[in-house]
């Protein structure tokens, strides 16, 4: 078998540590999204940010969709990067609740710390998946020991010059190079 990283995607998903982490983040996304969708008023009240209920609901839809995509996708890596983007949006929104007259400013800061922590995990997971995924910049398998020539490349060069004429598909005489010109 190939010298590959454990990203064998049989049965829909691979089983590397990063994949398991991605799966956990997917469930977390769905749980958080459900809370945002079904209890936006309570959330806003706790944060002292009343009036943002519809925005929180929209964020809930985003979280649930991202979670479903992470769990259902063969390759969760782009969706985890999507989560990182969403975290940025969350932090920016929470930052608007840090103004001086918000009596729940402390809660906002707790929420921002939690989001920042999750963002760090998201970035870690996304980076790990990117490194495993392979692509133009990151070879995930090295086949430089697979020549296919039991005798080695140079010893094999020209071994088949004994191919019989009937086993060649030849160019019509009229299109051939002059004999004296061929090497």
């Amino acid at each position: 078998m190939a010298n590959t990283l454990p990203r064998t995607a049989l049965k829909g998903r691979s089983q590397s540590a990063n994949d398991k982490l991605a799966s956990g983040l997917g469930w977390f996304s769905i749980a958080l999204g459900a809370a945002e969708l079904f209890a936006p008023r309570a959330l806003c009240r706790w944060l002292g940010m009343e009036g943002h209920e519809n925005l929180i609901r929209a964020y809930g839809v985003r979280e649930v969709a991202t979670g479903v995509a992470i769990l259902g996708s063969h390759d969760p890596q782009p969706w985890i990067w999507g989560r990182v983007g969403g975290d940025g949006l969350d932090l920016a929104t929470l930052a608007t609740g840090l103004h001086g007259d918000n009596p729940r400013k402390g809660n906002v800061m707790v929420a921002m710390a939690a989001v920042a922590g999750v963002t760090a995990i998201d970035v870690l997971c996304a980076n790990g998946l990117t490194a495993e995924k392979g692509g133009p910049a990151t070879a995930i398998a090295d086949y430089s020991d697979r020549s296919g020539f039991p005798r080695g490349v140079e010893a094999s060069r020209g071994l088949a010059l004994d191919v019989q004429p009937q086993n060649r598909l030849t160019t019509p005489e009229t299109q051939r190079a002059f004999p004296h010109a061929s090497t």
Partner: peptide, 9 residues
């Protein structure tokens, strides 16, 4: 990875 296999050959 494919280029590495081609180079091996």
């Amino acid at each position: 990875e494919r280029l590495s296999m081609a180079a091996a050959g």
